[in-house]
Design a protein around this nucleic acid. Structure first.
Lengths: 142, 142
DNA sequence: ATGACTGCAAAATATTTGCATATTC
DNA sequence: GAATATGCAAATATTTTGCAGTCAT
């Protein structure tokens, strides 16, 4: 999928993100690689076009992108973050053998532990993030 | 909850885990602290009874425990692993303010993004682990 | 005696931070 | 010109690894 610079600029401004050449290229890489790339993966992809880019900038940019809601960070692996340009609600299937991550559009019913869309499912992980109704820290902050 | 050494021994052997004083104490700590403790948390708890214990042993033991299925590792945070002695299928709610982790016994329906058992839910994360039906790496291994 | 467990120190890895420079509005 | 973004180097923190000593069967 080829997205024009114009469209990329619009996407950034639509999310209230100040543009820069690096940010455009990182966004472009995310749109091209929709297989939930790692920071290193994005860094290497963008390096081809912007040889001077630093990992720090990739980290900073992805952090900004996440805050502004243009990407989602996956927590499927303990050792490296993965990013998804598709922010619509969906889940993922991580292959134990090859490590690839597939989008899965089913609910995480507990009983599922067997087969999903033909794939063998061995583990079901799920968590929510929010604020406890009786969170003391939260009450202190108010 | 006080679990006798005898019961702890039985739990280990039931899961095919060779016993040791350190392993018994780590298992005991996991049974006492059911709030999904971190490695450091377990290390500090066990250190009170076994001052000579090393973090390496805690890491090794938790890794063994996980392989043998006596604990589950949570991936709710990118920077540190958390362990759960409750291996029954359930999900978790992480509080954005205080960082505590609560057990949640509901399904991860996508629409849920609002309120669960009175708590405010802002994010829904879920992933499965298994083997792709057409995984090349997997076929090679066979 | 053999094999497995322990624990210290060092290494590996991902991510963050400080700060000087460069870029954008 | 002020604010923000970039990128290098150093720092941080978690986890892993190598290896020698210890424990258990």
């Amino acid at each position: 999928m080829n997205t024009s610079m114009d469209e990329l600029l619009k996407m950034l401004s639509h999310h209230g993100i100040q543009p820069s050449f690096q940010r455009l290229k990182i966004l472009e890489a995310l749109l091209e690689r929709r297989d939930h790339p790692t920071v290193l993966c994005i860094y290497e992809r963008v390096s081809k076009d912007v040889p001077t880019i630093s990992k720090t900038t990739v980290y900073n940019t992805l952090s900004t992108f996440r805050e502004k809601g243009i990407v989602t960070a996956l927590t499927v692996s303990a050792d490296e973050a993965r990013y998804d340009i598709d922010t619509s609600p969906h889940h993922h299937l991580v292959c134990r053998e090859c490590g690839a991550i597939l989008d899965i559009n089913i609910c995480c019913e507990y009983a599922v532990k067997s087969e999903v869309e033909g794939h063998r499912v061995e583990e079901v992980h799920g968590y929510f993030k929010g604020v406890f109704k009786d969170c003391v820290t939260c009450e202190q902050a108010q």
